[in-house]
Computed example of a mutant assay.
Amino acid sequence: MDTKDVASDIENVLLSKEDIQERIKDLAARIDADYEGRDILLVGVLKGAVMVMADLARALHSHVTMDWMAVSSYGSGTQSSGVVRILKDLDTDLLGKHVLIVEDIIDSGLTLSWLQSNLRSRGPASVEICTLLRKPDAAKVEIDVKYVGEEIPNEFVVGYGLDFAEKYRNLDFVGTLARHVYE
């Protein structure tokens, strides 16, 4: 699916397919340098991180294993409350492992802050965060994110794993969703 398929639904393309791949390549180079000689456990947060994690794993030269978590944060509508429920937990024991949480986007940071704390309590050697996108103006809590692909404005974006009502995840770019779609 590309821009012509959803032209009336997208106001602005923030990152093209090529832009995304360049960010992923840059993130992978930094991660490879930082984890040289160590295996990495990539922990993807479902469902949004699927695209980022798949492309990042392929771009890395380090040995990686992968696991997935699904979490739900309660709140009203599109707002996260930070109260988190695990829907699908990891299958991997984290003891002594170098864990890299992979996210598609960080906005409020409430859910990710909880997740990072939860994973640190499981005895890993390290826990870091990698995200393709971050909305600094939407942050409600301070989170140390080691790897950020791009900072974006606090707008509703879709594509490359990001959805609205489970649609638009399969776009090969990230764009701002037109208001008429969600209002």
Results as ranks from 00 to 15, higher is better:
residue 102 V to S: 09
residue 103 E to L: 09
residue 87 L to S: 10
residue 154 N to V: 13
residue 70 A to K: 11
residue 100 L to S: 07
residue 123 G to S: 09
residue 29 A to M: 08
residue 14 L to D: 05
residue 78 T to R: 10
residue 94 L to R: 05
residue 2 D to Y: 04
residue 118 N to P: 01
residue 124 P to D: 03
residue 15 L to Y: 06
residue 177 L to V: 10
residue 93 D to R: 12
residue 114 W to T: 13
residue 46 L to H: 03
residue 126 S to M: 10
residue 89 D to V: 05
residue 134 R to I: 08
residue 144 D to Q: 15
residue 123 G to E: 02
residue 9 D to G: 00
residue 5 D to N: 03
residue 10 I to H: 04
residue 178 A to W: 00
residue 32 D to Y: 06
residue 129 I to E: 04
residue 83 V to R: 12
residue 181 V to R: 15
residue 60 L to V: 08
residue 25 K to L: 08
residue 134 R to M: 12
residue 119 L to M: 10
residue 166 E to H: 08
residue 73 S to Q: 13
residue 65 T to C: 02
residue 46 L to C: 04
residue 170 N to Q: 09
residue 132 L to I: 11
residue 61 H to E: 12
residue 138 A to D: 04
residue 88 K to A: 13
residue 115 L to A: 03
residue 136 P to T: 14
residue 121 S to L: 09
residue 160 Y to M: 01
residue 43 V to A: 07
residue 155 E to Q: 15
residue 37 G to Q: 13
residue 14 L to P: 10
residue 81 S to P: 11
residue 161 G to P: 00
residue 180 H to K: 15
residue 26 D to L: 08
residue 174 V to M: 12
residue 35 Y to F: 11
residue 145 V to W: 02
residue 77 G to Y: 11
residue 113 S to F: 04
residue 73 S to I: 07
residue 157 V to F: 06
residue 84 V to R: 08
residue 31 I to L: 05
residue 90 L to R: 04
residue 56 L to P: 00
residue 93 D to H: 12
residue 181 V to I: 15
residue 87 L to D: 15
residue 8 S to E: 14
residue 181 V to H: 08
residue 50 V to N: 03
residue 60 L to Y: 08
residue 57 A to M: 11
residue 124 P to W: 05
residue 123 G to D: 03
residue 108 S to Y: 10
residue 168 Y to M: 09
residue 88 K to G: 00
residue 137 D to L: 15
residue 72 S to P: 03
residue 93 D to I: 09
residue 87 L to A: 12
residue 12 N to I: 02
residue 14 L to W: 09
residue 146 K to P: 00
residue 182 Y to T: 13
residue 133 L to T: 13
residue 101 I to R: 11
residue 76 S to W: 03
residue 24 I to D: 03
residue 39 D to H: 13
residue 108 S to C: 15
residue 79 Q to G: 04
residue 75 G to D: 11
residue 181 V to Q: 06
residue 35 Y to C: 07
residue 125 A to N: 11
residue 170 N to C: 02
residue 40 I to F: 12
residue 28 A to K: 05
residue 12 N to F: 08
residue 90 L to Y: 02
residue 18 E to G: 01
residue 126 S to C: 14
residue 76 S to Q: 14
residue 74 Y to K: 15
residue 102 V to C: 08
residue 64 V to Q: 07
residue 23 R to I: 01
residue 6 V to E: 11
residue 41 L to A: 08
residue 86 I to H: 03
residue 46 L to F: 05
residue 153 P to Q: 02
residue 109 G to D: 06
residue 114 W to H: 14
residue 86 I to V: 14
residue 62 S to P: 01
residue 127 V to D: 07
residue 165 A to H: 04
residue 89 D to A: 10
residue 49 A to M: 04
residue 37 G to C: 08
residue 31 I to N: 10
residue 33 A to D: 14
residue 122 R to P: 09
residue 19 D to Y: 01
residue 104 D to R: 02
residue 68 W to Y: 14
residue 96 G to E: 08
residue 89 D to L: 05
residue 71 V to R: 11
residue 95 L to R: 12
residue 61 H to A: 09
residue 39 D to P: 07
residue 96 G to N: 13
residue 38 R to V: 05
residue 25 K to F: 03
residue 67 D to Q: 07
residue 25 K to T: 13
residue 12 N to Y: 10
residue 97 K to N: 07
residue 96 G to V: 13
residue 51 M to F: 11
